[in-house]
Amino acid sequence: MKKLAFTLCLMAAPLAAPLAAQDFSEGSEAKTWNLYAEQPARFDAKVVDILCELTGDCPENCGDGRRQLGLLRAADDALIFPNKNSQPVFSGAAEEMLPFCGKDVEVDGLMIEDPDVGAKNIYLLQKIRETGASEWTKANSWTKKWAAANPEAKGKGPWFRRDPRVKGHIERDGYFGLGLEVDQEYYEENF
């Protein structure tokens, strides 16, 4: 009976002390963004459609690019939410992960954990590869995909100055979103 109790204690220990405290920085080659709460993190995971994972609403191919995708970390089953790809141009990570929908992968990037703002398991994806593959895929393809989808917006300057939808909103509501007259007032007072 003593042996049984000991065995049960050993089995219960991992339940009482979750794996959240694990250090996933080992082997990471992630480049710093000099963010307050960043930590390098390289880990194995499965690419999932987050809405499907939470609600059971599961279209083909993770929604074909419509939906936000997540990483179900192999070590502890935690759902990691990549918010950002590796390009410093206001671009997300879902497009970068879509080719890996439903697959087991290895990823490298920066984890953001800042309890002051509720940031938990937020991730900046820098590179990804299918489990067992030797070559990494850099998570920097968003602008090329945007250019292919918006040929009419070809021109000089970054994508976000040329995006037709963004331009439409700004032309209608101004840079502060409060109307063109508010922008004008700001210009007159500050320039």
């Binding site: 671009s91 997300g92 703002v117 995006d163 508010v182």
Partner: peptide, 23 residues
């Protein structure tokens, strides 16, 4: 800080990020 990345001050950036696929 969090007070600066919301509201009208951050509206254009919010458009960029939303269009860019950031959650």
């Amino acid at each position: 800080g969090p007070d600066a990345v919301v509201g009208s001050a951050h509206h254009t950036c919010a458009l960029w990020c939303s269009a860019g696929g950031i959650p």
